[in-house]
């Protein structure tokens, strides 16, 4: 009886609770941050192989932005979790004609401007590429 009482003093108990709480907090924080990251999509804009813009896209994100490609500006529109090239100054207009993209792995490439936009894949279950 006596031994037992000395084995877990008040301080010990407090410490034990603190440790357990800390672990729980850490665990929950990791879960939340992971969940948070995959709940939203990340859109990435690259010019000449370098990332120039990176932003979260939620269902209600609606924006337009003009980005300078290698030679000319390109206007990108984001709406309802999708994005497209709205306007580009290139002869073929292939990037504009491609229309909307919405999922990870999808991308729009504008070759004359060396500009690429795509959605980042947040979890590993997605596609590694698309043949087209």
């Amino acid at each position: 009886m006596l031994m037992r009482k000395r084995w877990l003093t008040k301080a010990d108990t407090r410490l034990l609770i603190a440790v357990i709480l800390l672990s729980l907090v850490a665990y929950v924080m990791i879960k939340i941050s992971a969940g948070y990251a995959s709940a939203e999509k990340q859109a990435v804009v690259e010019v000449s192989g370098k990332i120039v813009r990176q932003f979260d896209v939620a269902e209600d994100t609606a924006t337009r932005m003009t980005i300078w490609g290698k030679t000319r500006p390109t206007t990108i529109e984001v709406q309802k979790g999708r994005m497209r090239v709205l306007e580009a100054f290139c002869p073929d207009q292939l990037c504009v004609k491609q229309g909307w993209i919405s999922g990870p792995g999808q991308s729009i490439v504008c070759v004359p401007n060396e500009l690429v936009i795509y959605f980042q894949d947040n979890d590993d279950s997605g596609l590694d590429g698309i043949t087209r």
């Binding site: 999708r82 491609q98 229309g99 909307w100 993209i101 919405s102 999922g103 792995g105 999808q106 997605g126 596609l127 590694d128 590429g129 698309i130 043949t131 087209r132």
Partner: peptide
């Protein structure tokens, strides 16, 4: 590796993986 095949008539869709 998982590689999608583009739906030829819908740029947002895949026709196979």
């Amino acid at each position: 590796w998982k590689v999608g095949i583009q739906d030829p008539r819908n740029p947002e869709a895949l026709i196979g993986i």
